[in-house]
């Protein structure tokens, strides 16, 4: 496991997103009915629980009994045991019960499990029921900020039934999240009907393809990315000499040298393309040379 990463628990997903979710982030899983959002959330929770981590599971739709029953149907029998051992806390809320959502919500999560950095699941975040349109963005931003402080959250979001997620007012401001994963099911029963796309993975490289997945009883979501797709996400070492050469060229750039050297180093670690980076490096160095020496850095 990469440092600072939380495994998603979804088989095959960590490889596509740089090792998993980043710690203390908000990760949204969205999709229509029946794509496996709750399975995703339960799998994320169980992966941590079975490794001694604590989980807070906030649900606005399902009762504790329903969640236990659904997991048992999927072949995950250990959920009840984790509740008994107080590793898993399921909170069943009604949106209408929250007077000041942005304050109440974070407080409930904080009080329910004071342990260090738990996995948090919100399934689903039915925002229209408890946020006024005017306050929605601000409230969500506040909730997300608080959740980030407390742990690493997976938030499940139901896509509107008409599939039109672009309407003003009904759309969740996805830019507030650190990761957005989109699950889809076309319903033809073929390999590419059930697909996963990583729309966004803030501060981290991620696969940009369309990945087929299946929901297997006993295992949950299994992503069937091809070897080529996985290879595409891995950094390439083929062009290391190009990066070395570019770093040498920064020597003549005075105060900018250290900054550029560090940036080129980061790019090198994240260069997943098959293409030669020389053109990109030359362009950046040329642009950075402009005005070099005129600005005094404090």
């Amino acid at each position: 496991m990469k440092k600072g990463r939380i495994s998603t628990g979804i088989y095959g997903l960590d490889d596509l997103m740089g090792g998993g979710f980043r710690e203390n982030t908000i990760n949204i899983v969205r999709g229509g009915t029946g794509v496996g959002k709750t399975t995703f959330a339960l799998q994320y929770a169980l992966f941590g629980l079975n490794r001694g981590e604590k989980v807070i599971y906030v649900t606005f739709e399902m009762s504790e009994e329903q969640i236990i029953r659904d997991s048992r149907d999927l072949g995950w029998v250990e959920l009840g045991e984790h509740i008994d051992n107080k590793n898993l806390k399921i909170i069943h809320l009604f949106g209408e019960d929250l007077t000041f959502p942005s304050l109440d919500f974070a407080e409930i999560v904080r009080k329910s499990n004071p342990s260090n950095n738990p996995r948090i699941v919100i399934d689903p975040l039915t925002y229209p029921t408890f946020y006024s349109e005017k306050e929605k963005r601000k409230s969500l931003s506040t909730i997300f900020q608080e959740l980030r402080k407390h742990g690493t959250a997976v938030i499940v979001l139901e896509e509107p039934a008409d599939g039109n997620n672009q309407q003003d007012g009904s759309a969740m401001p996805l830019y507030l999240a650190d990761t957005v994963i989109y699950l889809q099911n076309l319903g033809f029963g073929e390999m590419y009907d059930r697909t996963l796309r990583i729309m966004k993975n803030r501060g981290s490289k991620h696969g940009e393809g369309l990945y087929p997945y299946s929901i297997e009883t006993g295992f949950g979501i299994v992503i069937n990315a091809s070897e080529k797709q996985i290879e595409r996400v891995k950094p390439k070492t083929t062009f290391d000499d190009r990066f070395k050469k570019a770093i040498e060229q920064t020597k003549s750039m005075g105060k900018l040298k250290d900054l550029l050297e560090a940036r080129i180093g980061v790019l090198q670690k994240n260069w997943t393309h098959d293409e030669d980076p020389s053109r990109t490096l030359a362009l950046v160095l040329e642009e950075e040379k402009k005005g070099n020496g005129k600005v005094k850095r404090t």
């Binding site: 390999m191 087929p212 069937n224 990315a225 091809s226 070897e227």
Partner: peptide, 9 residues
Amino acid sequence: MVKLKGLEE
């Protein structure tokens, strides 16, 4: 995986 390989090839 085998099917995907076939498709890519």
